[in-house]
Simulated scan of single mutants.
Amino acid sequence: MNWSINWYDLFRGLHIVAVIAWMAGLLYLPRLFIYHIKHTDVTAVTDVFKVMERNLLRLIMNPAMIAVWIFGIALIVIHVRDLEGWKFFQEPWFIVKELGIVGITGYHHFLAVRFKKLQRGEPIGTESFWRKINEIPFVLAIIMVLAVTLQFGQN
């Protein structure tokens, strides 16, 4: 029995699991903001949302984002070292994926800043605003998944 580890497949699987956890948080935190904003006049309710938001961001979203980046970089290192070298960095699909990652990471930090403001009792926008903006990570995820699976523009 061969127990050697295929590090690329292991890291790819862990990367996917981390992406799922991160995306769940990115989609759920704005929903919590909506309910929090809706009930700003009821302290007992907003206190519960403050705890939920803090736990989601600090215990799920931040660690998942870090894991996505770590496993993603590990996949790149293995890919460069063992597979195709650096040439895939110039492929359109990879460029689209990296732009998407930068966009989603920026969105994550945008949410984190709004979280801190909301925790201090400062306004962060309307329910309508958060209902609209909530779709951003999902659209970026669709674009990135299609870019990676289709690998368009590959030479």
Rank of each mutant, 00 (worst) to 15 (best):
D9C: 05
P137F: 11
L146G: 09
I20G: 01
M65V: 10
R131Q: 05
W130V: 00
L83E: 15
P123I: 00
L56N: 04
F89G: 02
L118N: 07
H108K: 12
F49M: 14
Q119M: 11
L146E: 00
T105N: 09
R81F: 07
I78E: 08
V42M: 10
I76W: 12
E84W: 10
W69P: 00
K116L: 04
A112R: 14
V45R: 01
H108M: 06
R54C: 13
D82K: 07
I34T: 13
F152G: 04
W22M: 06
K97G: 04
Q90F: 14
A112Q: 07
D9N: 09
A147W: 06
I5L: 10
I104D: 07
D47S: 15
A18Y: 11
I136S: 00
V48Y: 06
Q151T: 02
R81N: 12
A18F: 05
R12S: 13
D41K: 11
H39W: 08
F33L: 02
R31W: 06
W130T: 00
A21K: 10
L27H: 10
W3N: 09
L146Y: 03
L75F: 02
N2L: 12
P123G: 11
F71Y: 08
E91D: 12
I101H: 06
I78F: 10
E98P: 00
I104A: 07
T40N: 15
W22T: 05
V68P: 00
G125E: 09
D47L: 14
A112N: 15
R81Y: 08
F71G: 01
W130E: 00
G13Y: 15
T149S: 09
I142H: 01
L56I: 07
L29K: 04
F49P: 03
F33Y: 04
D47E: 13
V17F: 10
V19D: 03
E84N: 11
A64S: 07
Y107A: 09
F94I: 03
F115S: 11
A74P: 15
I124Q: 01
L14H: 04
V48H: 09
R12W: 06
L150N: 06
I37W: 02
F88P: 03
A64W: 06
H36L: 07
N134L: 13
I60D: 00
L29P: 01
L111P: 01
Y35N: 13
P63Y: 05
V17P: 01
I78T: 12
I20W: 10
I34H: 07
D47R: 14
F115A: 09
L140G: 01
I143N: 07
G153C: 11
A44I: 12
G103F: 14
V113T: 06
I101P: 00
A112G: 11
F138M: 08
W93P: 01
L14Q: 08
Q119N: 13
I73Q: 12
R131G: 01
M144K: 01
R120N: 15
W22R: 05
F152L: 03
T149N: 02
H79A: 13
I136H: 00
T105K: 04
F110H: 13
H108L: 09
